[in-house]
Write a protein that binds this DNA or RNA. Structure first.
Lengths: 336, 336
DNA sequence: TTGAAAGCGCTAACAT
DNA sequence: ATGTTAGCGCTTTCAA
């Protein structure tokens, strides 16, 4: 199809080496040659093949990224922030949307391997053995963004989910809530399932409160499950004063359910989410949420990935923990 | 780093051709050779280089995609649907998030060119000359998804925005609305700016209604502009009975503004959006919206792109127009 | 300052 | 059924 470096060289009457030199802005090219070559490049609408360069240099400047679900607000926001830094640093993103399927994750990981991407960023959390094997045998650096890596061999850039859930719960208790409901995620899911739940539990314990079995329910982070679990709670004899959901989507589901049942939020019941995705600001009432620093998450993920790529000796002795921040909005109120 | 086909060949004591044959599942390989080679492939954890294959075959099986904004619900939903079909068809997606910057769009287009992607899908709309020049000189097929192509040389897969806006407006009029407000987008933006506005206008005209200057305002499709324009409308002396926003984000902005001003929706005022993105179902009241068939949009975009890629003689004499559908939810009501 | 030639990892035409 | 070799488009010695 397009012209190759050879075509340019021939038309310009020079060697391919010279064209290569012009392409790469090297020294030791005469002005005449430079101009001639550039003219021909224009004429032929030539553009150098990244493929060939990659083959030669063994670098693709591509980062493969495993996204759990593109339709999820939080994922796509992080993706967007990762893209921004990656692009600025000269990396391009090959996006593997796995739609929560391990089959698809494995498929994409193998593609990344074949593609010889410079590195892989994983934003997903629950793995099976085949995937762990892949990680172990991969020839490029792998970094986990917003989730805990399956082993300390890999770097994670994330918040302290345990502490964040602890702080949220403590805030609720300190503002007078005693009957705290918790809508959690899959406990097999270390970062956002288990750790957040443990943070909630320990904060309750610290303040001498016990978890009320009727008020602790587990779903799948998604909106419908928030709605469903909330419905179970509402239909019971007693109402908690606040519902702490382990994801914003679940919080929105819970909010909608409360509104559907004619409850006033936060007058009748407070609702608090987790993640700080944009959705919390755009529903009414706007939802109080434990916010993750998405810009920093994106930036640092790429920064460290870049380190891992350019410097094979780069070592770390712990995860990169970013600061969380509770953003109080309209959906929660103090009881005192 | 990793092993090459040569390493496999040597270790197995066969030629590279034989290894290649095994890799590609060709006929005429003895069972013994096949097993030997496969064993060595396992031992060496070998995976064939897609780079080298691409260089040889002049096919990358990569589709470059220009996304206006990853944080936008509608964009990422389409992207997700495109990804699904693309992945099923063996294509991988290189995502160019341009964050509405033409500089960045051009940058990504050039990268796609260098990368020798098999095709480019564009989900963006307002171009400058440099970008149009790029399109004209590109050596791979270019397809426009959900937006109108800048010329009929390119294929568009999209709905009929004019007709969709016309139908929405007519529906409102037929359910008794006379004072219809319209929150539009950039009129330079043919598909969603100009055509939707013209559809609105013509439907009004058809029913003998004139647009009320006080009720027609233009923003940028985003939520804050919907809020702002709605505020301008509310602060005027008279209220329309319905607000038709040219995007769901603007509709949500308008809804929030109405709620913030203590209006009841749809009792005091109806609100209608455009796009049918998930957000319309998750706010309260859920928003009536002119829905675009996102799954079909994604699927057909990739189907046609595939055609363009494999069959250079593929021709079309018109855009691919998909059906729109008004989904009535809680935010609008009939006045009769 | 310029060029010839080897080689990156693979496939395919040709030979045997 | 298997192997030899050229070549995809580029960069990089090495030589001139």
């Amino acid at each position: 199809m397009g012209a190759s470096i050879k075509d340019v060289a021939q038309r310009a009457g020079v060697s391919v080496t010279s064209v290569s030199r012009v392409l790469n802005g090297e020294k030791y090219v005469s002005k005449a040659l430079l101009e001639k070559v550039n003219r021909v490049i224009e004429e032929l609408n030539y553009s150098p093949s990244h493929i060939a360069r990659s083959l030669k240099s063994q670098k693709t400047s591509i980062i493969g990224i495993i996204v759990p679900n593109l339709t999820n607000q939080f994922s796509s926001t992080i993706l967007s922030n990762i893209e921004e830094t990656a692009s600025a640093k000269g990396y391009n993103l090959l996006v593997g949307n796995i739609a929560e399927s391990l089959e698809k994750e494995l498929k994409y990981l193998r593609i990344f391997q074949n593609m010889r991407v410079d590195g892989i960023i994983v934003m997903h959390q629950k793995f099976d053995d085949r995937i762990l094997d892949f990680f172990a045998g991969a020839s490029m650096p792998i970094l986990f963004s917003s989730v805990k890596a399956p082993s300390s061999t890999y770097l994670s850039v994330m918040i302290d989910d345990y502490q964040a859930a602890f702080d949220t719960t403590e805030h609720l208790i300190q503002t007078g809530h005693v009957n705290v409901a918790y809508l959690g995620g899959d406990l097999d899911d270390i970062t956002s399932g288990l750790n957040r739940y443990r943070g909630f539990l320990d904060a309750m314990k610290k303040h001498g409160l016990e978890q009320d079995e009727r008020f602790v329910k587990f779903g799948d982070y998604k909106l419908p499950s928030g709605h469903r679990l909330m419905e179970e709670i509402i239909r019971q004899d007693e109402l908690p004063t606040v519902v702490f959901a382990a994801s914003d989507d679940m919080a929105v589901g819970a909010l909608n359910c409360a509104l559907d049942y004619g409850l006033q939020v936060p007058k009748d019941i407070s609702i608090v989410g987790f993640d700080g995705s944009r959705i919390t600001e755009l529903v009414r009432p706007a939802i109080t949420s434990m916010e993750q620093p998405v810009e920093e998450l994106g930036r640092k993920s790429v920064d460290y990935m870049h380190q891992l790529i350019v410097n094979p000796e780069f070592t770390f002795d712990s995860d990169i923990i970013l600061q969380h921040r509770l953003v109080v909005r309209e959906s929660s109120r103090a009881l005192m």
